[in-house]
């Protein structure tokens, strides 16, 4: 039986199992393999500017995928991350461009808007017992519609807020080390990853996130207020979407109200490639980050190689299935 090894060598194997390090190793080596292959295939791939472009392209999907990771670990799903991101961007636009308020208020407003929307989703799921798939599908459409209504269906530009584009496009690192102009958007992605990793690993909220996905009934029987924590997870995921909204708005210097639908699937793909189980209980932010990187490295590399767009889509689909199949094989062998 497989449990025997676990019991005889608990320290080592348990450590690998709990952290999902093995899968991360797998995903990580996949990422390295992609980098090597593309570098060999084109001299233009491993250029500073292109690497920065890849990272920049990862930032929004990466942050969204981190939000999705939180919810997926609880055994739920959040289809509204994409349009919630847009909604938060529009709220920032309302605060900064329509109302002309200072930048920090716009940032705060976007994140709070995300938190509030997450609270609503969480409450619908926990209290009204609407399945997450349906609840967030509804929220996806509600938020999409609200974004169009609030913005008057036109993009809101941030031309009156000069510092706004700096949120994603400026480079704090570049101002210190000119040779390394890493955009702030990338910095924010890693910052969000670190914070959420920390919350998942070190705080009660993180512990309950895993516990809920593992066995919700057991958590309830342990006397934990399950509903409250579930709502908290969705709210946290919502605020992460708020950050994504700021990133995309800053990158485009505008809040594009029609954008966002379809982005939830890319986010979920990154989560799955990163080894988080859709059935809940297992997952890591680092894995998701690697998953998001794999998706953008793949897209970028295939473009650099001038692969026709039709085939790029086919290859991405293959990689998603391969990644999950590798995970299934791993678990069967262990």
């Amino acid at each position: 039986m497989d449990s025997i090894s676990t019991e005889t060598k608990p320290g080592l194997i348990a450590g690998i199992r709990t952290s999902g390090a093995f899968h991360k190793l797998l995903a990580f080596s996949g990422l390295i393999a992609l980098l090597v292959v593309f570098s060999l295939a084109s001299p233009n791939f491993m250029q500073t500017q292109n690497v920065l472009a890849i990272l920049q392209a990862t930032s929004v999907n990466g942050v969204l995928a981190i939000a999705a990771t939180l919810v997926i670990i609880t055994g739920g799903i959040d289809l509204s991350v994409g349009t919630l991101m847009t909604f938060c961007a529009v709220i920032a636009g309302v605060i900064l461009t329509f109302l002309g308020l200072p930048l920090p208020l716009g940032v705060l407003g976007a994140i709070l808007a995300g938190t509030a929307a997450g609270l609503v989703s969480g409450t619908i799921i926990a209290k009204l017992k609407v399945p997450p798939f349906i609840a967030t599908l509804g929220m996806m459409l509600i938020l999409k519609g609200l974004s169009l209504v609030i913005s008057g269906t036109r993009p809101i530009y941030f031309n009156d807020t000069p510092g706004f584009t700096q949120i994603a496009q400026g480079s704090l690192i570049g101002s210190i080390i000119p040779a390394l102009p890493v955009p702030n958007g990338v910095l924010i992605l890693f910052l969000v990853a670190a914070v959420i990793s920390f919350i998942l690993g070190k705080t009660a909220l993180g512990r309950y996130t895993f516990a809920l996905g593992s066995n919700e009934e057991a958590v309830r029987l342990s006397g934990v207020n399950v509903d409250r924590w579930k709502i908290a997870v969705y709210a946290l995921a919502g605020s992460v979407c708020g950050v994504a909204g700021l990133l995309i708005a800053s990158r485009l210097n505008s809040a594009q109200p029609a954008l966002g639908q379809g982005y939830e699937l890319d986010a979920i793909a990154a989560v799955v490639i990163g080894g988080t189980s859709l059935s809940g209980g297992r997952g890591t932010v680092l894995g998701t980050l690697i998953g998001a990187l794999i998706i953008s490295v793949l897209a970028n590399g295939l473009r650099i190689l001038s692969v026709a767009q039709e085939w790029q889509t086919v290859v991405t689909g293959c990689i998603i299935i391969l990644a999950v199949y590798a995970d299934i094989l791993r678990r069967r062998n262990l």
Binding site: R207, N215, G281
Partner: peptide
């Protein structure tokens, strides 16, 4: 009534960490 993905200690103290 255990959470399979959590460790033994985490299971024991769930809700009272």
């Amino acid at each position: 009534a255990l959470m399979r993905d959590l460790t033994a200690a985490q299971n024991i103290f769930i809700g009272r960490e």
